[in-house]
Design a protein around this nucleic acid. Structure first.
Lengths: 340, 340
DNA sequence: TTGTACGCGTTATCAC
DNA sequence: GTGATAACGCGTACAA
């Protein structure tokens, strides 16, 4: 059993080499210097032999930079976010940053808590998807205040609140328009909608797009055919119960809800798409392997995640480069819609 | 547009209050002290008004503790891991620790890189699921060497290598035994196996358990009926092609593979469970909402994740409390197996 | 009850 | 080419 070793410091390896700490620091950091090849090599060799390990905490304090990015997302078990994080991490690592990940579980209080925590840890920047709770009752104003006051660069991902913040998101309105139009083109005139939380811009945008498609194509928009809910399976089940019998097609605002609709359909012995056509949103992994493969819109997650990461890095270097990036969804036609 | 504010220091609020930094430090950290209620309140009020934010980097350097745990996992987009992380984070936050998350993408080089990175960041402890690459060719010895040399507390999660490390894992052998026995009890005598990477203890354990069940029950174990692969969908598809026609039941070593088997079955118009019974392992979220709900074993992820977190925290306080925790899986009978 | 001085491990600015 | 020395912001004895 090992006893706890004392951590080595720069000075320790300097002593072991018979040089000054300055020299060691210069060499180990690969900095320009007038140090002879011989001592350079010696320092590197000795440091390796001693298993010397840099102390990044001290380094951060000295250079006033942590090379760390904080990410706050509302639900890590949602594939949409876990995949985003993966892409962000990959990109940020390339740029020399590490990531501290925080999971708000859709709670406003957690958003605040983690925000303060990340700031006190002196992260160089923050990527944030605010919780749905934070979008209620103007809670977001408190978040904006903290961010503004502190001045740490940040970009809002997927969800955003009013203001001049840098943001990266999908053009939900237009994607929803096309999706709905596809249903209409296939002869559907009674279209049911299952929404997400209406405090979120994503859900608002999707509703607007669907509404516009319905109205612009001469159909009537019927509030009775929209079921307001959350972005989860249970909402899909509930929405299905509400809509079955009333409509010939259902547009669920995310794939997870669509799974709920499918489950309920199986239970009620309703066939998709023979009895009811179904459309989702997100194209998460499982949508392509279901018994009835889901027609949906794919968010260009990799592009969006990388864009958010790069935008943040730019912002860290130049705080005035704030941008509002909007991406187009990719329409994916599979098996869950037929002509009516 | 905000200009970058200068960060406030302890001294700034001390000056603003007309007291010493020491006093401010004591009050803001809620430490025992003989400071009068009046000044206490004043300090807190002023700090709030100024929007003072603690500098945790400096704090960490001073107290030689970062209150940060590093987690290294091989694949964040695998629900098994993203769910574990969620539970670990919740538990660790309760205990006052933050989490830095690293995703090795199953690469040995990444394991090494992130390990060094976390150590140089002075994390107080590490929870690690090594990559499958790290389990090949005794690569893990290098990981063990780094960990041992540094002395930072760590616990191995799910996968482990030989040694006296603290570990948390499932009793794979016994779970696989029961699963296989269930198939046998249902009259199946020709059982196909689809394995994961044989460098992983999980896959080895499951194979041993299945083998034991087969042999102990008087059947013969036929190498031709085992398909060696990885823990992914594609392996499921490949395994299905290999096994269809040869066996009446398939035990895929994780749920993802089972999805691949289902997909292939649909393609070939083979009915599950009418033509072939199917069993999975893990019980990830989607297994309960598929058209044919999967019979499988649930790993007690929450328990395991919390145990790993708590074990690590104990280890941080007392390095000699190393333990090897093994959990029993929970057998979940659904619809994918019938009598033969 | 409050203030002073030094240490934590690294970087950066000067002299030598 | 190389080596002292002062920051970085906070914690903690110890002194007052």
């Amino acid at each position: 059993m090992k006893t706890n070793k004392k951590k080595l410091t720069l000075k320790d390896v300097a002593d072991a080499c018979g040089v000054s700490p300055t020299a060691v620091s210069l060499v180990l950091n690969n900095r320009e210097s007038n140090i002879s090849k011989a001592t350079k090599e010696k320092i590197i060799r000795v440091a390796n032999e001693m298993n010397y390990q840099f102390n990044n905490v001290a380094r951060s304090l000295a250079i006033q930079k942590t090379n760390t990015i904080g990410i706050i997302i509302p639900d890590i078990s949602n594939a949409f976010f876990s995949e985003s994080i993966r892409y962000m991490q990959t990109e940020l690592h390339k740029q020399g940053y590490e990531v501290i990940l925080c999971n708000s579980e859709e709670k406003f209080a957690s958003d605040i808590k983690y925000l303060n925590l990340l700031l006190s840890r002196q992260v160089d920047g923050i990527i944030m998807t605010v919780s749905s709770e934070s979008m209620e009752n103007e809670n977001w104003k408190k978040i904006k205040a903290i961010l503004d006051n502190n001045g740490t660069p940040h970009v809002l991902f997927d969800r955003y609140f009013p203001g001049d913040e840098a943001k990266v998101s999908l053009d939900n309105e237009s994607s929803a328009y096309h999706l709905t139009y596809y249903l209409i083109k296939n002869g559907h005139t009674k279209i049911g909608l299952i929404t997400g939380p209406m405090t979120l811009n994503s859900s608002k945008g999707r509703l607007e797009g669907a509404k516009r498609a319905i109205i612009e194509n001469g159909l009537k928009f019927d509030e009775k055919n929209v079921f307001y809910g959350k972005y989860d399976i249970e909402t899909g089940r509930l929405g299905a119960e509400h809509l079955f019998g009333k409509v010939t097609a259902i547009f669920s605002f995310n794939d997870l809800q669509a799974y709920g609709v499918m489950e309920k359909a199986r239970e009620r012995n309703i066939k998709i798409p023979q009895d009811v056509s179904l459309i989702g949103f997100d194209d998460i992994f499982y949508s392509s392997i279901l018994e009835t493969k889901l027609t949906t819109v794919k968010q260009p997650l990799e592009k969006m995640s990388r864009a958010a990461s790069n935008l943040l890095v730019e912002l860290i270097d130049n705080a005035n480069k704030k941008k509002n990036l909007s991406f187009a969804g990719k329409f994916i036609i599979r098996d869950s819609v037929i002509k009516h």
